[in-house]
Simulated scan of single mutants.
Amino acid sequence: MPIAAAREIVLTDQERAVLEGFARRRKSARGLAQRSQIVLEAAAGRTNTEIAQRLRVSRPTVTRWRNRFVERRVDGLLDEPRPGRPRTITDEDVEAVVVKTLESTPKDATHWSTRSMAKEAGLTQNAVLRIWHAYGLQPHRQEKWKLSKDPLFVDKVHDVVGLYLNPPERAVVLCVDEKSQIQALDRTAPILPMRPGTPERVTHDYKRFGTSSLYAALDVRSGQVISALHQRHRAVEFKKFLQRIDKAVPADLDVHLVLDNSSTHKTPAIQRWLKAHPRFVLHFTPTSSSWINLVERWFAELTRKLLQRSAHRSVRKLNMDITNWVATWNEDPKPFTWTKSSDEILESIAIRCNETNRSEH
């Protein structure tokens, strides 16, 4: 069945200003901000499929709000009134809660709770919770972030992302890193198994039985992992891992390694080895940017599915379990697909930098 052509959108200057305000303002509801962004993308000439991919929404969602705007312009993006009892909370009440949440803190805490905000605003806790939910506010949450100060950040992002999106011919791209100091831990009392109505239970304290270091090289295309376990993580162990990769990868293929700026990757011994093996090409990630190395995503799988809740009374048992887990992974490997272009990444970082600058003034 043929797909209907997307309806063309041409904005007036006033409409564009209103939509950009909705999309940018921190006090806009998430739904309204998203709908405004859909229309702005459509006005830029993008197809519904392109918009859906960029904004990570479904294609029918894009079609619905695009058509709604064509028919009713900006008013079509606003939530329609629904049947029910009259509102008891005014727009001024909502705005006051949002402004207080964003621009102030209670006297006795670092952030608002529903209880403290309800007392401050003279509303119920449920009313505060609904307002926060509508505006995407979560005062109880805090996320960590860090901007790289690498002077070659832009060049390195283009280099690494280019490898992911357009890998070279007759070559394999491997994301390499070490997960060091993996601890063999056992609880001080037996783990109590899950029962109906009761989750698995463990003691809060544990005993240490030593550590191990895992070297891993994730094939970007296939998802296969080359791994090695060592007691330490020095240049000596890294060189042994390079030799392992050299044996594992067919001799007629170049080897492009994505890795971080650890000093063990740049010692004279490593440099001599690389000169003797010219098919190896190193691509360093920007400093403080482990998120760009796909093997970190694989390490997260290993941690979540094995290490986080396992118990080991020896390093040997720990290494056996890791080796078996990697072997199981390689039986049915699942590559991680990189979706963002380097330009999109740099644009997102520029937005974060602007937010940082505004928060400092």
Rank of each mutant, 00 (worst) to 15 (best):
M1W: 02
A6W: 01
R7H: 11
I9E: 08
E20I: 00
R24N: 10
K27H: 11
S28Q: 01
E41H: 13
A43T: 03
A43S: 15
R46F: 11
V57F: 00
S58C: 08
R64Y: 12
D75M: 08
G76I: 05
E80I: 02
D93K: 04
A96T: 12
V98N: 05
P106L: 05
P106A: 01
T110C: 07
M117K: 11
M117T: 02
E120F: 07
R130A: 13
I131G: 06
I131H: 07
I131Y: 07
W132G: 05
W132Q: 05
Q138P: 00
E143P: 00
K144W: 14
L147T: 05
L147S: 13
D150C: 10
V154E: 15
D155V: 04
V157N: 11
D159E: 13
N166G: 05
P167L: 04
E169F: 00
A171P: 11
S180I: 01
I191E: 14
P193Q: 07
M194D: 04
E200G: 10
E200V: 15
S222A: 12
V225N: 04
S227T: 13
A228W: 02
E237G: 04
F241Y: 06
R244Y: 01
R244S: 07
I245D: 08
A248K: 12
D252Q: 14
L253G: 01
D254C: 03
V255K: 06
V255Q: 04
H256G: 03
L257T: 06
D260V: 09
T267I: 05
P268I: 03
P268E: 01
F280W: 10
T285Y: 09
S290F: 10
W291V: 07
V295W: 05
V295P: 09
R297Y: 06
W298M: 07
F299M: 09
F299E: 07
L302E: 09
V315I: 11
L318W: 01
M320E: 14
D321K: 13
W329G: 07
P335V: 07
S341N: 12
D343W: 01
E347N: 14
C353L: 14
H361F: 09
